[in-house]
Design a protein around this nucleic acid. Structure first.
Lengths: 247, 247
DNA sequence: CGAAGTATTGATGTACTTCAACGCCTGTGG
DNA sequence: CCACAGGCGTTGAAGTACATCAATACTTCG
């Protein structure tokens, strides 16, 4: 077996592991050699189950590990000065949790499992060591951090300028795209969070969320059955967001 | 001269350089040795002037360098699908520009100098190389990226839940704190941006910004003279934000 | 089944927007 | 020097999108 073939085999092996571990976006395609793969594998092989309703971490917990979501759904929220809750995001398969804790060393928010979930724990100190030695991984990690900044800015734009309908449409399309990218149905969504959580995330009240969903349903854009939503006319939702049907 | 003393001297030297270069937050305190300092110094020593009204970069420009603001004031904004502008932040002395471009390699927004400005350019490929070799610098850089995420989440919370008065108060306090941390007056603010820019950033219309500022003025919280604002009762602004005077 | 949490829908209230008029400042040309 | 134009900011009046309050239905689970 040639070296190249050996590397290739190892990469295939890693791909499988990462696939089951929902770490595709971190692991691939990095151009790793076999040693690198072993060491990365050691680090990311720790797993942890989090039952529905339990926290993966809470505000103030010190950062030991980042977590990559393998299965399930998390809600990350913060508490304002006056105790009000603010949902800052929903994480599912393939998403990383804990990035906000890198600055400061302690978690800024709490991560609650909305359904039974499993995560891969990535000890941060060991990851830092690997980053220094693996330029491809370093680049990928920076891209993830930067990508999180971009995603937040997109949400900011939404909260700053969009009307309720646009917000909901954007939310549904974003979820659809993320689930689709992970091999799930992009049209049949099982939202594990309440209307109130959605509203909180989008800067709306739960009644408004409900009303807008009903409105979409009446227009034939979606089909609503409790927390299961089927997107029927994704093109129309996109048109709504991009302003073609504005006003 | 002992090694320790040599290092200390070099750090002092770096501190001076970085101070003039507004890079204190990147350079210190890292525990660098003399070689490291030289190499970092090489990288960050490139400067560039940007006259008022000109762009440092525009959407789509490929990322060559990050930029640390030395003097002046920038507005970073993006264009939505329908062409509407969305201001995503104001950067001044000591702030880094271009972090959102790390993922994707191209700038997601445009950076416009609101007044004559000067920046230090930090070639990104060379910075990446240094990060791999300098653990302290790597950690600091990750902290900055993560800190940007946190700052954006704070803004998100603001846009999602706060009322107009709270937004303006938060905006003024944030600006005051940032300027104060860089040795400028925390109470006498020269805002180089228009009311429209402020409103855009905060998710409000320019008339609302004007009204709220007038309201603050009538309450004796601030003194307004065009784009110069003097904070007179910073405690009252803080109380407003923290919800003590809610409703 | 009953109870509690969650979702939908309606009626009313309000914070912010929109539309509009006017004042202030800066620069430009006669 | 004054006249006038064009930006920017302030203030008022009317409109609207969303919040709030409230009643009813659905869903889940002991």
């Amino acid at each position: 077996m040639t070296d190249a073939a050996a590397v290739s085999t190892f990469q295939e092996d890693l791909k499988k592991r990462c696939s089951t571990c929902s770490l595709r976006h971190l692991c691939l395609p990095l151009g790793l050699d076999s040693d690198d793969i072993k060491r990365l594998d050691d680090i990311i092989s720790q797993r942890r189950k989090v039952p529905a309703g339990q926290h993966l971490f809470r505000v103030g917990d010190s950062l030991r590990s980042l977590a990559a979501v393998r299965t399930g759904f998390f809600k990350v929220y913060e508490l304002g000065a006056d105790g009000r809750e603010q949902v800052s995001g929903f994480q599912t398969e393939g998403d990383l949790l804990g990035l906000d804790a890198i600055s400061g060393g302690a978690h800024r928010g709490s991560a609650l499992a909305l359904v039974d979930a499993e995560v891969c724990a990535i000890p941060f100190d060991r990851l830092e060591g690997l980053l220094a030695e693996m330029p491809g991984l370093q680049r990928r990690f920076h891209a993830i951090l930067s990508g999180t900044i971009v995603a937040n800015q997109t949400l900011m734009m939404m909260l700053g300028t969009m009307r309720a309908e646009h917000r909901l449409a954007t939310f549904l399309l974003d979820l659809s795209a993320r689930l689709g990218a992970r091999g799930r149905s992009p049209t049949l969504l099982h939202l594990p969070m309440s209307r109130e959580d959605i509203g909180n995330y989008l800067g709306l009240k739960l009644e408004t969320v409900s009303r807008v969903l009903s409105h979409f349903r009446d227009q034939g854009l979606i089909k609503v059955a409790g927390r299961t939503i089927e997107i029927r006319r994704i093109d129309a939702l996109r048109a709504l967001v991009s302003g073609v049907l504005r006003h």
